[in-house]
């Protein structure tokens, strides 16, 4: 349990800070577009992330103010990836306890196995209850990466 399982790289292109959106669809699409920009996914994956919530509801809002947008692995996932979106004004996703959402992490994985190992690291990071509000307040990409313990590219920590 204690070993460090590193997160996928989080380049500037995968980080969007202080965006204004009209609704949860806008938030999820922005998180998806950040995954596209970073080269992790194609636009079809973004559509599927919206589709998961349309089908199953706002269960991706797994903590107060926080959504983990994702869909199943598929051919529209080119490589594993993460994106981070913070909103200027929080939006409701329709979750009974955790709305409104101000921080969205987009997640793309190529197989369920690979997924489980860096999801454990995401859990490590977010088990600190200060991290979500700190992400919401972060003003630059380095601040976001530092809170998550992520790097801008594969290789040495930034």
């Amino acid at each position: 349990m204690k070993e460090t399982m590193s997160l996928p790289p989080l380049p500037d292109s995968a980080i969007t800070i202080g965006l204004r959106v009209d609704d949860w669809q806008g938030a999820v699409r922005a998180a998806g577009q950040a995954l596209e920009r970073s080269g992790a996914t194609t636009p079809e994956y973004t559509d599927r992330m919206v589709g998961v919530i349309e089908e199953f509801g706002a269960y991706v809002v797994i903590a107060p103010g926080f959504a983990l947008a994702h869909a199943r692995p598929g051919s529209d996932v080119l490589t594993e990836g993460l994106s981070v979106l913070t909103l200027a004004e929080p939006v409701a996703f329709g979750h009974p306890h955790n709305d409104p959402v101000q921080v969205v992490v987009g997640l793309a994985v190529t197989s369920s196995d690979e997924h489980v190992h860096f999801v454990a690291e995401l859990a490590n990071v977010f088990n600190d209850e200060q991290v979500i509000p700190a992400l919401a307040r972060a003003t630059d990409a380095d601040g976001i990466r530092s809170l998550l313990g992520a790097t801008a590219s594969n290789g040495e920590p930034s």
Partner: peptide, 12 residues
């Protein structure tokens, strides 16, 4: 819903 992501966090 998808069997990955949130269920993985909940498991951990």
């Amino acid at each position: 819903g998808a069997g990955i992501g949130t269920s993985g966090i909940l498991k951990v």
